[in-house]
Protein backbone atom coordinates (compact mmCIF):
# COMPACT_ATOMS: atom_id res chain seq x y z
CA UNK A 1 0.00 0.00 0.00
CA UNK A 2 2.66 2.45 0.95
CA UNK A 3 4.49 2.42 -2.43
CA UNK A 4 1.44 3.60 -4.32
CA UNK A 5 0.52 7.27 -4.34
CA UNK A 6 -2.34 7.94 -1.93
CA UNK A 7 -5.85 7.74 -3.35
CA UNK A 8 -6.94 10.75 -1.34
CA UNK A 9 -4.56 13.53 -0.39
CA UNK A 10 -5.83 16.49 1.58
CA UNK A 11 -3.64 19.42 2.54
CA UNK A 12 -4.60 22.27 4.82
CA UNK A 13 -8.31 21.97 4.08
CA UNK A 14 -10.36 24.75 5.63
CA UNK A 15 -13.99 25.77 5.46
CA UNK A 16 -15.37 28.91 6.98
CA UNK A 17 -19.11 29.67 7.12
CA UNK A 18 -19.26 33.31 8.11
CA UNK A 19 -17.86 33.46 11.61
CA UNK A 20 -18.01 29.74 12.05
CA UNK A 21 -14.91 27.71 11.26
CA UNK A 22 -16.36 24.34 10.27
CA UNK A 23 -13.12 22.73 9.16
CA UNK A 24 -9.96 24.15 10.67
CA UNK A 25 -7.23 23.25 8.21
CA UNK A 26 -6.88 19.48 8.14
CA UNK A 27 -4.45 17.27 6.24
CA UNK A 28 -4.51 13.53 5.71
CA UNK A 29 -3.95 10.80 3.16
CA UNK A 30 -5.84 7.65 2.37
CA UNK A 31 -4.29 4.70 0.55
CA UNK A 32 -6.05 2.63 -2.08
CA UNK A 33 -8.35 -0.01 -0.60
CA UNK A 34 -8.18 1.57 2.83
CA UNK A 35 -11.20 2.24 5.01
CA UNK A 36 -10.74 5.53 6.80
CA UNK A 37 -13.29 6.34 9.47
CA UNK A 38 -14.21 9.87 10.45
CA UNK A 39 -15.25 9.60 14.04
CA UNK A 40 -16.67 12.47 16.00
CA UNK A 41 -19.75 14.10 17.43
CA UNK A 42 -22.44 15.76 15.31
CA UNK A 43 -21.29 19.15 14.09
CA UNK A 44 -17.61 18.30 14.31
CA UNK A 45 -17.12 19.00 10.60
CA UNK A 46 -17.26 15.46 9.24
CA UNK A 47 -20.00 16.10 6.69
CA UNK A 48 -18.54 19.42 5.63
CA UNK A 49 -15.22 17.73 4.94
CA UNK A 50 -16.83 14.94 2.94
CA UNK A 51 -18.86 17.43 0.93
CA UNK A 52 -15.70 19.31 0.03
CA UNK A 53 -14.04 16.06 -1.00
CA UNK A 54 -17.01 15.29 -3.26
CA UNK A 55 -16.82 18.73 -4.85
CA UNK A 56 -20.17 19.82 -3.39
CA UNK A 57 -18.69 22.60 -1.30
CA UNK A 58 -15.91 24.95 -2.24
CA UNK A 59 -13.13 24.94 0.34
CA UNK A 60 -12.10 28.25 1.86
CA UNK A 61 -8.51 27.08 1.61
CA UNK A 62 -6.52 23.94 1.04
CA UNK A 63 -5.97 21.39 -1.70
CA UNK A 64 -7.68 18.09 -2.42
CA UNK A 65 -6.32 15.45 -4.78
CA UNK A 66 -8.40 12.38 -5.39
CA UNK A 67 -7.08 9.58 -7.59
CA UNK A 68 -4.60 12.11 -8.96
CA UNK A 69 -7.36 14.61 -9.82
CA UNK A 70 -7.20 18.12 -8.44
CA UNK A 71 -10.79 18.51 -7.23
CA UNK A 72 -10.83 22.29 -7.54
CA UNK A 73 -9.46 22.22 -11.08
CA UNK A 74 -11.43 19.33 -12.56
CA UNK A 75 -14.61 18.54 -10.63
CA UNK A 76 -16.06 16.63 -13.59
CA UNK A 77 -13.20 14.16 -13.66
CA UNK A 78 -13.71 13.68 -9.94
CA UNK A 79 -17.42 12.91 -10.23
CA UNK A 80 -16.85 9.95 -12.53
CA UNK A 81 -14.50 8.38 -9.99
CA UNK A 82 -16.48 8.76 -6.80
CA UNK A 83 -19.56 7.29 -5.26
CA UNK A 84 -21.33 9.25 -2.56
CA UNK A 85 -23.92 8.27 -0.03
CA UNK A 86 -25.30 11.20 1.90
CA UNK A 87 -26.80 11.16 5.36
CA UNK A 88 -30.38 11.04 4.13
CA UNK A 89 -30.08 7.99 1.83
CA UNK A 90 -30.81 10.09 -1.26
CA UNK A 91 -33.31 7.73 -2.78
CA UNK A 92 -36.54 8.70 -4.49
CA UNK A 93 -39.22 7.46 -2.12
CA UNK A 94 -41.90 7.58 -4.80
CA UNK A 95 -39.94 5.35 -7.17
CA UNK A 96 -39.46 1.61 -6.93
CA UNK A 97 -36.18 -0.09 -6.06
CA UNK A 98 -35.45 -0.86 -9.70
CA UNK A 99 -36.46 2.62 -10.87
CA UNK A 100 -34.03 4.18 -8.42
CA UNK A 101 -31.23 1.92 -9.63
CA UNK A 102 -32.11 2.63 -13.28
CA UNK A 103 -32.06 6.34 -12.60
CA UNK A 104 -28.71 6.46 -10.86
CA UNK A 105 -27.25 4.03 -13.39
CA UNK A 106 -28.48 6.30 -16.18
CA UNK A 107 -27.12 9.39 -14.52
CA UNK A 108 -23.73 7.70 -14.45
CA UNK A 109 -24.10 6.92 -18.15
CA UNK A 110 -24.69 3.18 -17.83
CA UNK A 111 -27.02 1.55 -20.32
CA UNK A 112 -28.16 -1.75 -21.79
CA UNK A 113 -26.65 -5.01 -20.62
CA UNK A 114 -23.97 -3.31 -18.51
CA UNK A 115 -26.65 -1.43 -16.58
CA UNK A 116 -28.82 -4.52 -16.12
CA UNK A 117 -25.88 -6.55 -14.84
CA UNK A 118 -24.95 -3.84 -12.34
CA UNK A 119 -28.57 -3.53 -11.23
CA UNK A 120 -28.62 -7.29 -10.69
CA UNK A 121 -25.46 -6.99 -8.60
CA UNK A 122 -26.84 -4.11 -6.55
CA UNK A 123 -30.11 -5.95 -5.94
CA UNK A 124 -28.27 -9.01 -4.77
CA UNK A 125 -25.90 -7.03 -2.60
CA UNK A 126 -28.72 -5.16 -0.90
CA UNK A 127 -30.81 -8.31 -0.49
CA UNK A 128 -33.61 -6.87 -2.62
CA UNK A 129 -33.53 -9.32 -5.52
CA UNK A 130 -37.03 -10.46 -4.63
CA UNK A 131 -38.43 -6.93 -4.30
CA UNK A 132 -37.32 -4.88 -7.29
CA UNK A 133 -40.79 -3.41 -7.82
CA UNK A 134 -41.33 -2.28 -4.23
CA UNK A 135 -41.64 1.44 -3.64
CA UNK A 136 -38.68 2.71 -1.67
CA UNK A 137 -41.00 4.45 0.79
CA UNK A 138 -42.17 0.99 1.87
CA UNK A 139 -38.66 -0.28 2.68
CA UNK A 140 -37.26 -0.55 6.19
CA UNK A 141 -34.19 1.51 7.13
CA UNK A 142 -31.62 -1.24 6.67
CA UNK A 143 -32.80 -1.99 3.16
CA UNK A 144 -32.89 1.66 2.20
CA UNK A 145 -29.36 1.96 3.45
CA UNK A 146 -28.08 -0.99 1.43
CA UNK A 147 -29.99 0.19 -1.64
CA UNK A 148 -28.42 3.64 -1.29
CA UNK A 149 -25.04 1.96 -1.19
CA UNK A 150 -26.02 -0.08 -4.24
CA UNK A 151 -26.92 3.13 -6.10
CA UNK A 152 -23.61 4.71 -5.12
CA UNK A 153 -21.47 1.87 -6.53
CA UNK A 154 -23.35 1.13 -9.76
CA UNK A 155 -20.66 2.83 -11.82
CA UNK A 156 -17.82 1.00 -9.99
CA UNK A 157 -16.32 4.07 -8.36
CA UNK A 158 -12.73 3.82 -7.14
CA UNK A 159 -13.50 5.94 -4.10
CA UNK A 160 -16.57 5.81 -1.95
CA UNK A 161 -17.67 8.57 0.41
CA UNK A 162 -20.20 7.49 3.00
CA UNK A 163 -21.60 10.19 5.24
CA UNK A 164 -23.14 8.70 8.39
CA UNK A 165 -24.39 5.68 6.45
CA UNK A 166 -25.50 3.81 9.56
CA UNK A 167 -27.45 6.51 11.33
CA UNK A 168 -30.96 5.39 12.20
CA UNK A 169 -30.38 1.77 11.21
CA UNK A 170 -30.80 -1.24 13.47
CA UNK A 171 -27.65 -2.99 14.82
CA UNK A 172 -28.05 -6.11 12.72
CA UNK A 173 -28.34 -4.09 9.52
CA UNK A 174 -25.35 -2.02 10.59
CA UNK A 175 -23.32 -5.16 10.99
CA UNK A 176 -24.38 -6.40 7.57
CA UNK A 177 -23.59 -3.02 6.06
CA UNK A 178 -20.06 -3.04 7.43
CA UNK A 179 -19.56 -6.48 5.92
CA UNK A 180 -20.43 -4.98 2.53
CA UNK A 181 -18.03 -2.11 3.11
CA UNK A 182 -15.32 -4.57 3.99
CA UNK A 183 -15.97 -6.59 0.82
CA UNK A 184 -15.69 -3.44 -1.27
CA UNK A 185 -12.40 -2.50 0.31
CA UNK A 186 -10.94 -5.93 -0.41
CA UNK A 187 -11.89 -5.33 -4.04
CA UNK A 188 -9.68 -2.25 -3.92
CA UNK A 189 -12.28 0.46 -3.37
CA UNK A 190 -11.03 3.25 -1.15
CA UNK A 191 -13.61 4.19 1.44
CA UNK A 192 -14.01 7.24 3.59
CA UNK A 193 -16.84 6.81 6.04
CA UNK A 194 -18.08 9.07 8.79
CA UNK A 195 -19.92 7.92 11.87
CA UNK A 196 -20.66 8.92 15.38
CA UNK A 197 -21.04 5.33 16.53
CA UNK A 198 -17.82 4.70 18.43
CA UNK A 199 -18.27 0.95 18.20
CA UNK A 200 -18.08 1.10 14.41
CA UNK A 201 -14.54 2.35 14.44
CA UNK A 202 -13.19 -1.17 14.86
CA UNK A 203 -14.27 -1.92 11.27
CA UNK A 204 -12.00 0.80 9.89
CA UNK A 205 -8.35 0.41 8.97
CA UNK A 206 -7.62 3.81 10.37
CA UNK A 207 -9.63 6.37 12.27
CA UNK A 208 -9.51 10.12 12.24
CA UNK A 209 -10.93 11.47 15.45
CA UNK A 210 -12.56 14.76 14.58
CA UNK A 211 -13.56 17.46 16.95
CA UNK A 212 -14.47 21.07 16.26
CA UNK A 213 -13.12 21.00 12.75
CA UNK A 214 -9.75 19.46 13.60
CA UNK A 215 -8.32 15.99 13.40
CA UNK A 216 -7.45 15.25 17.02
CA UNK A 217 -5.84 11.91 16.23
CA UNK A 218 -5.38 9.71 13.18
CA UNK A 219 -4.28 6.11 13.54
CA UNK A 220 -5.38 2.49 13.58
CA UNK A 221 -8.00 1.70 16.21
CA UNK A 222 -5.46 -0.39 18.22
CA UNK A 223 -2.75 2.27 18.15
CA UNK A 224 -5.20 4.97 19.10
CA UNK A 225 -6.23 3.09 22.20
CA UNK A 226 -2.67 2.28 23.18
CA UNK A 227 -1.41 5.75 22.58
CA UNK A 228 -4.06 7.58 24.46
CA UNK A 229 -3.93 5.26 27.41
CA UNK A 230 -0.15 5.20 27.37
CA UNK A 231 -0.16 1.41 27.50
CA UNK A 232 -2.28 -1.69 27.29
CA UNK A 233 -5.03 -2.85 29.56
CA UNK A 234 -5.19 -6.30 31.15
CA UNK A 235 -7.83 -7.94 33.28
CA UNK A 236 -6.67 -10.12 36.19
CA UNK A 237 -9.10 -12.71 37.53
CA UNK A 238 -7.97 -14.19 40.83
CA UNK A 239 -9.14 -15.42 44.23
CA UNK A 240 -8.82 -12.31 46.43
CA UNK A 241 -8.75 -9.09 44.44
CA UNK A 242 -8.01 -6.80 47.39
CA UNK A 243 -4.86 -8.63 48.40
CA UNK A 244 -3.84 -9.07 44.80
CA UNK A 245 -4.11 -5.34 44.19
CA UNK A 246 -1.73 -4.58 47.03
CA UNK A 247 0.64 -7.23 45.74
CA UNK A 248 0.67 -5.79 42.23
CA UNK A 249 0.86 -2.10 43.09
CA UNK A 250 4.56 -2.44 43.78
CA UNK A 251 5.31 -4.47 40.62
CA UNK A 252 7.53 -2.60 38.17
CA UNK A 253 5.62 -3.66 35.01
CA UNK A 254 2.28 -2.43 36.36
CA UNK A 255 1.74 1.31 36.01
CA UNK A 256 -1.72 1.43 37.46
CA UNK A 257 -4.13 -1.07 38.91
CA UNK A 258 -7.72 -0.86 40.09
CA UNK A 259 -10.45 -3.20 41.29
CA UNK A 260 -13.09 -3.71 38.69
CA UNK A 261 -15.97 -5.80 40.02
CA UNK A 262 -14.59 -9.24 40.88
CA UNK A 263 -11.41 -8.69 38.94
CA UNK A 264 -8.59 -6.21 38.54
CA UNK A 265 -7.74 -3.94 35.64
CA UNK A 266 -4.11 -3.05 35.26
CA UNK A 267 -2.42 -0.62 32.86
CA UNK A 268 0.82 -2.06 31.54
CA UNK A 269 3.33 -1.19 28.84
CA UNK A 270 3.13 -4.55 27.15
CA UNK A 271 0.43 -7.06 27.95
CA UNK A 272 2.44 -10.19 27.09
CA UNK A 273 5.51 -9.22 29.15
CA UNK A 274 3.47 -8.07 32.10
CA UNK A 275 1.20 -11.14 32.22
CA UNK A 276 4.02 -13.52 33.21
CA UNK A 277 5.33 -11.15 35.87
CA UNK A 278 1.83 -10.69 37.29
CA UNK A 279 1.13 -14.41 37.49
CA UNK A 280 4.55 -15.01 39.08
CA UNK A 281 4.13 -12.23 41.68
CA UNK A 282 0.64 -13.46 42.67
CA UNK A 283 1.89 -17.04 42.92
CA UNK A 284 4.72 -16.02 45.27
CA UNK A 285 2.16 -14.19 47.45
CA UNK A 286 0.01 -17.33 47.63
CA UNK A 287 -2.85 -16.01 45.49
CA UNK A 288 -3.94 -18.89 43.32
CA UNK A 289 -5.72 -19.38 39.98
CA UNK A 290 -4.70 -16.08 38.45
CA UNK A 291 -5.76 -15.56 34.84
CA UNK A 292 -4.51 -12.52 32.93
CA UNK A 293 -6.13 -11.40 29.66
CA UNK A 294 -5.62 -8.34 27.54
CA UNK A 295 -8.75 -6.25 27.13
CA UNK A 296 -9.68 -3.38 24.83
CA UNK A 297 -10.27 0.05 26.09
CA UNK A 298 -13.34 1.41 24.32
CA UNK A 299 -12.77 4.11 21.73
CA UNK A 300 -15.24 6.16 23.63
CA UNK A 301 -12.73 6.34 26.49
CA UNK A 302 -10.03 7.30 24.05
CA UNK A 303 -12.18 9.94 22.45
CA UNK A 304 -13.18 11.51 25.72
CA UNK A 305 -9.54 11.70 26.81
CA UNK A 306 -8.32 13.24 23.57
CA UNK A 307 -11.19 15.64 23.21
CA UNK A 308 -10.99 16.93 26.75
CA UNK A 309 -7.31 17.56 26.14
CA UNK A 310 -8.23 19.43 22.96
CA UNK A 311 -10.89 21.56 24.62
CA UNK A 312 -9.22 22.53 27.83
CA UNK A 313 -11.27 23.08 30.96
CA UNK A 314 -14.01 25.18 29.30
CA UNK A 315 -14.55 22.76 26.40
CA UNK A 316 -18.14 22.19 25.46
CA UNK A 317 -17.93 20.16 22.25
CA UNK A 318 -20.02 20.97 19.19
Amino acid sequence: MSEQPPMIRVEGLRKQFGDFLAVAGISFEVAQGEILGFLGPNGAGKSTTIRMLCGLLKPTAGRIHIDGVDVAADPDALRKRIGYMSQKFSLYQDLTVRENLRFYGGVYGLRGAALESRIGYALEMSGLTAHPETLVSALAGGWKQRLALGCAILHRPRILFLDEPTSGVDPLSRRRFWDLIHDLSTEGVTILVSTHHMDEAQYCNRIALIDRGSIVALDTPGQLKRRSLGGELVRIECASPDRAMQALAALAQVRDVAVFGNSLHALVDNAADAAAAIVERLRTRGIAAARVTQIDATLEDVFVRLVSANHGPAGTGA
Binding site: Y84, Q87, Y108, G109
Partner: peptide, 14 residues
Protein backbone atom coordinates in the same frame (compact mmCIF):
# COMPACT_ATOMS: atom_id res chain seq x y z
CA UNK B 1 -36.39 19.62 0.02
CA UNK B 2 -36.27 15.85 -0.17
CA UNK B 3 -32.49 15.70 0.13
CA UNK B 4 -31.95 14.00 -3.21
CA UNK B 5 -30.19 16.98 -4.72
CA UNK B 6 -27.00 16.44 -2.81
CA UNK B 7 -26.42 13.08 -4.40
CA UNK B 8 -27.43 14.34 -7.81
CA UNK B 9 -24.78 17.02 -7.49
CA UNK B 10 -22.11 14.44 -6.84
CA UNK B 11 -22.88 12.71 -10.15
CA UNK B 12 -21.43 13.73 -13.53
CA UNK B 13 -24.72 15.40 -14.61
CA UNK B 14 -24.01 18.80 -16.15
Amino acid sequence: ERGTMELLLSTPVT
